[in-house]
Design a protein around this nucleic acid. Structure first.
Lengths: 245, 245
DNA sequence: AATTGATCAGTTGTCCTACAACCTGAGGCT
DNA sequence: AGCCTCAGGTTGTAGGACAACTGATCAATT
């Protein structure tokens, strides 16, 4: 069971600093390959202890953004390209598109409350046979070109009917957030599929190849809060993963 | 430029403990959803300071393996399934297959030294026009079924001819390691392709759909050390990514 | 009886100081 | 040139302390 508390959710200092450092890095304040200020200096910049700075640094390191070298410093990882945001980080697709410098739009195709199918019941861990979901069918556009179509299913019991309206328009994340169910983890499967085999595609991708991102989102307490199938048109979206050791 | 030192590469304590904890978790010593020993207890188990334990814990957290909750403890993340190893972690394919409980084999199809094509020159950051690569073409089998075919290209200047023999047989990683060029990061693109369009497939995947993992591996100093294209047959390999915030 | 509120022990978050291990560059030496 | 030593800066680890948070217990109130 999940507590639907508003989760005062104070953000730990370490995470806050990590996010700020990340922002500064992607903003270009530190060039790729260059050295960041030493831990001691960051301490005085942020007025926190070294422990906290190190917490943030470690987080950035495991995101693959920086490289920490014993005895010499912390360096911004330098890839030829300037890709900073990979699939391993959980963020909305529109967010990712925007960060690539494109204009992201979302068009709601349909929104229904209906009985969950077997797949949805399994993925969302719904026990009762007549459990319902709110299903949102959308198209995602980058610079006015359709790059993906998606179906997001959320257990109906989690969504007050008053929120239905908001679901199609903005980001699903925003609505979940408002309800107090922020997804913090997602387990995604990747598949290759033919356009013809996609039931929700409206003709315009019939002969295309698609990449299917089949994922379940979980909140902090480990409960599944959303199940999405997102079909990306091959070639129109850069699908990048940063793999680290 | 990279120093090709043998990289004494002492493993930091924190990482060592993180790896051991990971091993214990996947081995089932701690059930999904259950609480791990407190930091204090882990300190005495491993005879290290709390700083080190926390370093390890944070690493596991950002790998998505555990969830650390302020005031209450560290918990093994509980997914319905028992998937523990996602694509976001850099490990060899054979390793991943083995961890799934399958029998992994590799069959070398060809190994050549040849001039790098333009794509390889770009990805591997080779400046001279007549730069050479060692190209290894292999098939990866899980339980005696072909799940992927791959081409790995390594700048010829990095590989002494004496190592060529080892390249096809075992893991490419092992050979790179021996040369002193351990990949610690990889930037991977994902594409969907048709079997017919894969030049190296030998007929047996003509009508299949494939997932192409197109990736460059980098060593610790940021130099590219290998470029691989791996074609996974759709449906025969579980392609999972754990996305975290 | 049920709810509320205070208290307490246990756990993670942050701070401080100190030292070990490591890397880099400067300078002196051959 | 190359090699060595050394000093200074940087990250890794240690130990102790307190703050902030969680979950449970239990008394007080309704």
């Amino acid at each position: 069971m999940s507590s639907s508390r508003s989760t005062g959710a104070r953000v730990p200092l370490g995470r806050e600093i990590a996010e700020d450092l990340r922002r500064r890095i992607v903003a270009g304040e530190f060039a790729p390959g260059s050295r960041l200020p030493s831990e001691a200096e960051l301490c005085s910049q942020y007025r926190v202890s070294r422990v906290t700075v190190r917490t943030a640094a470690k987080a950035l390191e495991s995101q693959g953004l920086v490289d920490i070298r014993h005895g010499s410093g912390m360096f911004v990882v330098d890839f030829g390209g300037q890709i900073r945001s990979g699939l391993q980080e959980l963020r909305s697709i529109t967010e990712t598109i925007e960060e690539l410098g494109l204009n992201a739009k979302v068009r709601r195709v349909a929104l229904t409350r209906r009985q969950a199918d077997e797949n949805e019941r399994t993925r969302l861990d719904l026990t009762s046979d007549d459990a319902e979901v709110v299903a949102v069918h959308r198209e995602i556009l980058a610079d006015d070109q359709v790059v993906a179509v998606s179906i997001d299913s959320i257990p109906a019991s989690l969504v007050p009917a008053s929120e239905d309206a908001g679901l199609g328009n903005g980001s699903v994340f925003a609505v979940l957030d408002r309800i107090g169910l922020t997804p913090v983890r997602a387990l995604a499967e990747i598949h290759a599929v033919r356009g013809n085999d996609v039931p929700i595609a409206e003709g315009h991708v019939a002969d295309e190849l698609l990449i299917l991102l089949d994922q379940v989102h979980y909140d902090r307490s480990g409960d599944p809060v959303a199940y999405s199938k997102t079909y990306f048109v091959e070639g129109r979206f850069q699908f990048v993963i940063l793999r680290t050791r």
